[in-house]
């Protein structure tokens, strides 16, 4: 029976889709059967981030409205046969799927997969409600910025009110150098403000731009620190205990870390 995990944030542009794509890939790399669902109807994006945009025939609304069977709409990943994408519809709006239909859909997926990851739209309206309707757990992505943290706090309240338990947090795009200069909120600051458990820390990393350009997950890129962070988060979701990356900006730490992967800082 799959665990259904919704990735959400409140604020847009903090990295939900990148996180969903990378965690799905990370889990599948470790042998789990994973379905990722793009619940951002009308603003389809998970397909391009995963490089699967040319393979779409049917989408989530086609399934819900009975134009195809669920299995026909699931797109197999290019590299990992255990990883599937259920794409969003691009031409419909958020009301095209109801929370009950979402719960039904998850019920069908649960028996065939170990994990179902749901990429939530930004905001706190219908699309978000659909995305958490059938979830067993919720993961909130935020960046260390006042607007993103404020929105994340709203989402914590809404997730708890929807009786989905206390969500776990991923702090994305940390810039260790700025944090050490006291010009960026630290992970500890964000945790103290939001008072929820930490699932992972992802450093700001230019390799994300490259991997997204190519439609390949960053977890494949051995030189990507962000990719490494996402691999670790995947392992934590899988129940393993993995220490958090040390992103303290002390001379040598990043060098040593990158050195482990055969790369030097120029």
């Amino acid at each position: 029976m799959a665990r259904a995990i919704t990735i959400t944030s409140g604020k847009g542009g903090v990295g939900k889709t990148t996180t969903t794509a990378n965690l799905g890939t990370a889990l599948a790399m470790r042998g789990a059967r994973v379905a990722v669902i793009d619940a951002d109807i009308g603003l389809r994006n998970l397909d391009v981030v995963m490089g699967l945009e040319n393979r779409i025939v049917y989408d989530i609304v086609d399934v819900v409205e009975g134009r195809c069977r669920l299995r026909q709409a699931l797109i197999k990943d290019k590299r990992l046969p255990e990883l599937c994408l259920l794409p969003a519809a691009q031409t419909r709006d958020k009301d095209a799927v109801s929370p009950d239909q979402m719960i039904d859909l998850l019920a069908q997926l649960r028996s065939d997969f170990d994990f179902v990851l749901i990429d939530s739209p930004a905001g706190i309206e219908g699309g978000f409600r659909n995305a958490i309707a059938g979830a067993d757990e919720v993961v909130i992505v935020t960046t260390p910025e006042v607007s993103a943290v404020r929105d994340a706090d709203r989402i914590v309240g809404l997730v708890e009110a929807a009786e989905k338990g206390t969500p776990r947090l991923i702090v994305n795009r940390i810039k260790p150098r700025l944090v050490s200069r006291g010009e960026m909120l630290s992970v500890e600051d964000v945790l103290e403000l939001l008072a929820i458990d930490l699932l992972g820390i992802v450093p700001d990393d230019e390799t994300i731009v490259t991997s997204t350009n190519r439609g390949e997950a960053a977890v494949y890129d051995q030189t990507s620190l962000a990719g490494r962070a996402f691999l670790n988060i995947g392992r934590r979701l899988n129940g393993e205990t993995v220490p958090f990356l040390d992103l303290t900006d002390q001379p040598g730490v990043l060098d040593r870390f990158l050195g482990m992967f055969g790369r030097r800082r120029s």
Binding site: V149, R150, G182, E183, M184, L185, S186, L193
Partner: peptide
């Protein structure tokens, strides 16, 4: 430092 300011402002806002 701006991180300290951000934290104080967020505490009030939250």
């Amino acid at each position: 430092r701006s991180a300290e300011t951000a934290k104080k402002r967020l505490m009030m806002v939250l």
